[in-house]
Amino acid sequence: MNRMPEITKEMFRRIEVDKSEAEVIARPSINFWQDAWRRLKMNNLAMFGLGLIIFLVVMALFGPYLVPYTYDFQVLEDQNQGISAAHWFGTDDLGRDIFVRIWNGGRVSLLIGLMAALSDLIIGVIYGGLSGYRGGKIDQLMMRIVDVLYALPYLLVVILMMVVMETRGIITIIMALAATGWVGMARLVRGQILQLKEMEFVLAARTLGASTKRLLFKHLIPNSMGPIIVNMTLTVPSAIFAEAFLSFIGLGVQAPLASWGTMVNEGVAVMLSGYWWRLFFPAVMISLTMFAFNVFGDGLRDALDPKLRK
């Protein structure tokens, strides 16, 4: 260290230090959601996923109006046309425009994904919340049921339900997915509630005389929101996959309605005939959508993890 020449006698005057200043926390306090959003924004891949999701939703909503066809409009002389100014993504074997069918299919896929996530949330939160909050015997019984359901191969059950239900369509698929999908969410919610019930701040709120309702809405639910949101985000791609899977094996939406799964199925059948666009576009769409939701969900999980909060 350098010799400091400028040490003078005057400098040895006592100063009063305001100690309260030393108590001030160095960084400004920001709330949990702001902090999560800040961290999410730093995650380029997750933001890319979010951008992609927004793009896909917008295109599913408005894409079909960009071209002068409808999803079931057939021009028989335009069968299996490649990419052209008239048909941006080509046409299928009935001369239907694939661009418009893609975005119509996108509506189906996104709707199913969204509804599956929502129904999981509703059933899962009610079931899991009740189980966790009540505890004791009721909890035991409810969780045994969940254990058994959890051991069922869910896609197999969905297939069975689709076989049994006579009418095929979006509603049926959503119902089948809802009937099987909530189990994971219920477990998650129950786990969160049990954990939070034991936490000291809930005890603190209790001793301060907070009512059950207030406890539930002000403390328990906001604090278990993080994992629930992440779970929902990741439900969307798996529901979209389930729909594509069902459509692929012939149990999904029925013609002339298009879904990405049915389009891939048709595309695979003509894959070796050179009509590559019929497989390419729906395949890319499914993958892009699942990719977008997966990376966004991962990013959300990292951003919402309170353990990672710095």
Binding site: F245, V268, M271, S287
Partner: peptide
């Protein structure tokens, strides 16, 4: 890994064949 999770088998199988 993310691609592996995102590309479903109904897409991956035809891709591999091609």
């Amino acid at each position: 890994a993310v691609l592996g999770v995102s590309v479903p088998n109904i897409v991956l199988a035809p891709l591999l064949i091609n």
